[in-house]
Amino acid sequence: MKNLKGEYYNSPFSHVYVEKEVWEHPRTKRILAKLPDADVIEIDHYKDVFCRKGQDYVLQHRAQNLILGAKHGTLLYKGAPVCQSFGNQNFYYTSCMMNCIFDCEYCYLKGMYPSGNLVVFVNLEDIFKEVEKLLLKEELYLCISYDTDLPALEGLMGYVQEWLQFVEENLFSGKKRLTVEIRTKAADSHFFERHFPVPGVIYGMTLSPQIVIESYEHKTPALRQRIAWATQAMTEGYRVRLCFDPMIYCKEWKQRYSEMLEDVFSQIDMDKIEDVSVGTFRVSQDYLKKMRRQQPCSMVVQYPFINDKGVYHYPKELTKEMEQFLVDRLKERIAEKKIFLWEDEEM
């Protein structure tokens, strides 16, 4: 018997649920080879586990399990209005994974998904084909790390590597231009040993004040690590976007965000930054309702937000003050045209 008192939760991916359909898929085999101690359970469809009734997202996330399946139907989605398009016309996103190993209390995934388990679609080649089809007609701006954090899972899944190869091949294929955004909070310094810069790929590093990271962004790297990663990435020729989104309110927010910017400005060459995005926390009312129910003691989701046409956000004056504060400070170091404020899209 294990010592039951020793640990309260199973370690991540102690159980792997594998769809019959992908049982023999090379990616399934590759991933399972890295999890030799996991109990592997065969399932008919990923939704049989992921969409069960009555699941507890928060508890499941503490002992997160892995579901390997195949994605069918729609593989590329039009970008949602609450998401920043950075001025791109054909803005799409894709979900080759659902959920994240990081545990940010304010993350909309907690309201969007019925389960805290991680789903990985191993039929990446089908998504690539879909992208290629679209590229025959038009240029594409594609976010591939929205409903997950691909770099955080790179050691196990290797999906960033596969996307890089795909984008690079596309560069020389004569098709329309493909730009891919990889949003992340991961800051693995070994990333650069195994990856290479590709002109069509932008890494969107999300930055928050250290107090916000410690309070709400559980299991994520510290601010200094994220800044160091972004600095090294740019030195090595990667395109980096800084995302100050979502900005999170705390009583001393002005001071905390000032300190964060000082750290950023002192270490990152802002002239080399691709662009920056700014936006305060906002979430749909349905998601917030679920997030609040699941996290009754989370200060960040229990803030008395204002409901504006189905979207919850901080009171207008506070939203404006927080965003303006950050934009003003950023303008001192970066051209205004490189600063993208989410409200701009709305207007």
Partner: peptide, 10 residues
């Protein structure tokens, strides 16, 4: 049906 196995049990 799949009951969650969240806790170490031995």
């Amino acid at each position: 049906f799949y009951p969650d196995i969240l806790y170490p049990h031995g």
